[in-house]
C-alpha cells in the first residue's frame, strides 16, 4: 500500500526575476519499508521534491498525498503538526539544536509531541544506543564529530515514530568511515523495523545501498528502478 503519492507535481519559483521550473510534473508513489535514493546532478530538483514531500515547501501545481491526506491543503500549525507526527528529517548539515545535548536533541521532538517524560528519556536512550552513541548521550553537538552528529540526527528523526524519514544528502559532509556507519544503521533500522527511508543524494555509497533508485534531471523523473 502506498504511503506517499505525488500527482503531477510542479514547482516554479523566481530567482533574480528568472522563472525556475525546479520540478515538472512528477508522479511518484512510495510504499512502507522502502529504502529509496533520489539521485541527480545539482539543481536537478531533488531537494525541492524532498522539501515538498516533507511539507516544507508548497507545490505550484499538483498534489502530495500522505497517509490519505493531501498535505498541499494543510496550512500553518496544522502542517507543522503533521510534519511532527508523520515525517522524520535528516539534513545535510546535521542541524541539531546547539544548546541541547545529544539526548535532549532526540527528546526534543517527543517533547513537542507531549509524550510522558519517562517514555521520552527511555526512547531517547534506546535510539542513541541503537545508533552507537550510548556513551555520548550528554555531549552537546559542538563536542561531537560530524558523523556522530548525523547519527544523533537520525535518532532524532526516528524519535517521533514517523511514517517515513526524508534524508537530504545525509552523507555529504561525512568521511568514509562515518558514512559507512550511518548507512549501516539506517539499513538495519529499515530492515529490522520496516522504517521507510527516502534519500536525495549524489553519493554512490548511498545509491549502492538503496533498493530503489529514482533519477531526476531538470525537474523530471528520468528513471525509476527497483533492485
Amino acid at each position: 500500500m502506498n504511503i506517499i503519492e505525488t500527482k503531477n507535481l510542479h514547482k516554479t519559483y523566481k530567482e533574480s526575476e528568472i522563472e525556475v521550473h525546479a520540478v515538472r510534473g512528477v508522479d511518484l508513489s512510495f510504499e512502507q519499508g522502502e529504502f529509496t535514493a533520489i539521485v541527480g546532478p545539482s539543481g536537478s530538483g531533488k531537494t525541492t521534491l524532498l522539501n515538498m514531500i516533507g511539507g516544507l515547501d508548497k507545490p505550484t501545481e499538483g498534489e502530495i498525498i500522505i497517509d490519505g491526506i493531501n498535505i498541499s491543503t494543510l496550512k500553518g500549525s496544522k502542517l507543522i503538526d503533521f510534519r511532527l507526527r508523520k515525517i522524520g528529517f535528516v539534513f545535510q548539515a546535521y542541524n541539531l539544536i546547539p544548546v541541547l545535548t545529544a539526548k535532549e536533541n532526540v527528546e526534543f521532538i517527543m517533547n513537542l509531541q507531549k509524550r510522558p517524560k519517562k517514555e521520552r528519556i527511555k526512547r531517547a536512550e534506546d535510539l542513541l544506543k541503537a545508533v552507537g552513541l550510548g556513551d555520548r548521550m550528554n555531549a552537546r553537538p559542538s563536542k561531537l564529530s560530524g558523523g556522530q552528529q548525523q547519527r544523533v540526527a537520525v535518532a532524532r528523526a526516528l524519535a517521533s515514530k514517523p511514517m517515513f524519514i526524508l534524508a537530504d544528502e545525509p552523507t555529504a559532509n561525512l568521511d568514509s568511515e562515518s558514512t559507512r556507519n550511518l548507512l549501516e544503521i539506517m539499513e538495519t533500522l529499515n530492515k529490522e523495523e520496516n522504517i521507510t527511508f527516502i534519500f536525495s543524494t549524489h553519493d554512490t555509497r548511498v545509491v549502492n545501498k538503496a533498493r530503489r533508485i529514482i533519477t531526476i534531471d531538470d525537474g523530471k523523473v528520468l528513471s525509476d528502478e527497483k533492485k
Binding site: 516533507g54 539544536i97 513537542l112 532524532r156
Partner: peptide
C-alpha cells in the same frame, strides 16, 4: 537556520 530547523522538525512558531 536554527529557527528553520526547529520549525521544520515540528516546533510550532508560537
Amino acid at each position: 537556520k536554527e529557527f528553520g530547523i526547529m520549525t521544520a522538525v515540528g516546533m510550532k512558531k508560537i
